[in-house]
Simulated scan of single mutants.
Amino acid sequence: MKEDNGRIVRLLPIAAGSIAGTLLMLNRVLTPALTDSQARSDAVGVVLTAVLILTGLLWQQVQPRKPDSTVLEGTEGFELLPTLPDALKTELAWASHLLLTNTVTRSIVVYYRGQVLLRRGILAPIATVTPGAILDRVLAKQKAIYLVDTKVYPGRIEFNYLPVNTQGIICQPLGTDGVMILGANAPRSYTKQDEAWIEGIADKLANSLATRSAIDGNLINPNDKI
């Protein structure tokens, strides 16, 4: 509703300028004898009309309409690997809550050392992560990959553990051993600030996971499942 109201406000100068220009033209056509004062008034009116229309056009460019969001297909859920230490469970819960409540993220999967540690948000029926070309590249290059609009990426088929109609995906590395996968409900919806914030949270999680692994040895049991 707020977005619709903003669009209407941005269109008002164009509408007002168009109406004013039409009225000026009709007034000029219907006036049998044009006086000097009326000519000056018409000139001022034309200038004001042009300013209104130009302002409306600029507003359309400066404040573009946000991409339409989609209701993701899946069930709301929150799953943690049960054998994780309580401290890690708390940190994963905290990080995922921040991302779900402060960004367009609607689905989160944390994959580390061959296991899914967390799934939260809108969940797909498939819970197992099988790394494909994109995740392999993230782990190898240690650099995030952002699929701004999944419809134009054939590689999206490897993300079958996210809702089928996920619109945007960020794969953020967790050190050299894992990836945090975020699914959004609208294309081109993550800002540069969002990406920087996601990277910071991922770095914090990666450090905690690596530290706990060093203390506990084999942190993840390959037989453990969510």
Rank of each mutant, 00 (worst) to 15 (best):
K66C: 10
L118P: 00
S18E: 05
Q142F: 02
G183A: 03
Q172S: 08
T166W: 01
V129R: 00
P85M: 04
V51Q: 09
Q61Y: 07
S189N: 09
P32L: 05
F159H: 00
A196S: 11
V148Y: 13
I181V: 15
G168Y: 08
G121V: 05
L58D: 08
I157G: 05
G200R: 15
R28L: 14
V179K: 01
K141E: 15
F159L: 00
L162H: 00
L147Y: 01
L92V: 06
S41F: 15
I14C: 08
R113M: 06
N223M: 12
N218F: 09
E76I: 12
Y111I: 03
G45E: 07
V46L: 15
A186G: 06
N185H: 10
N165K: 03
P85Q: 03
L26A: 14
S41Y: 14
S69P: 09
I108V: 11
L52I: 07
T103R: 01
A144M: 12
Y146Q: 07
Y161V: 01
T101M: 09
N160Y: 09
L118H: 04
S107V: 02
Q172W: 08
T55W: 08
S69A: 15
A202E: 02
A93C: 09
V62H: 13
V129E: 01
R119A: 04
R113N: 09
L84S: 00
P82E: 00
I19T: 11
A39H: 10
I181K: 03
A133S: 14
L12W: 09
P173W: 03
L139W: 00
Y161S: 00
L34V: 14
H97R: 14
P187I: 03
I122A: 11
A140R: 15
E158I: 03
R156G: 04
T83M: 04
Y146S: 07
L81M: 11
E199M: 09
P82K: 03
G183D: 05
P163D: 02
E76Y: 10
K66Q: 15
I157N: 12
E199H: 10
A186P: 05
G175K: 03
E195Q: 15
K143I: 08
I8Q: 14
T103P: 02
L54W: 12
L80M: 05
V71W: 13
G217H: 01
I170A: 15
P32G: 05
G21D: 05
L92Q: 03
P187A: 06
L52Q: 06
V109W: 04
Y153N: 10
T191K: 07
D68F: 07
Y112K: 05
I198L: 11
P85Y: 03
N5A: 12
A95D: 02
L205H: 01
D224Y: 06
G155F: 07
G183K: 06
S208N: 10
I134H: 06
P163G: 04
D203N: 14
R137K: 13
V44T: 11
R212H: 09
E91V: 05
V51T: 13
T35Y: 06
E3S: 11
W197G: 10
V129L: 01
L48K: 08
P13E: 02
H97N: 13
S41L: 15
L147N: 02
T211R: 13
D136T: 13
P131W: 01
T150N: 02
I226F: 12
A184W: 06
F78W: 09
G178W: 00
A16Q: 08
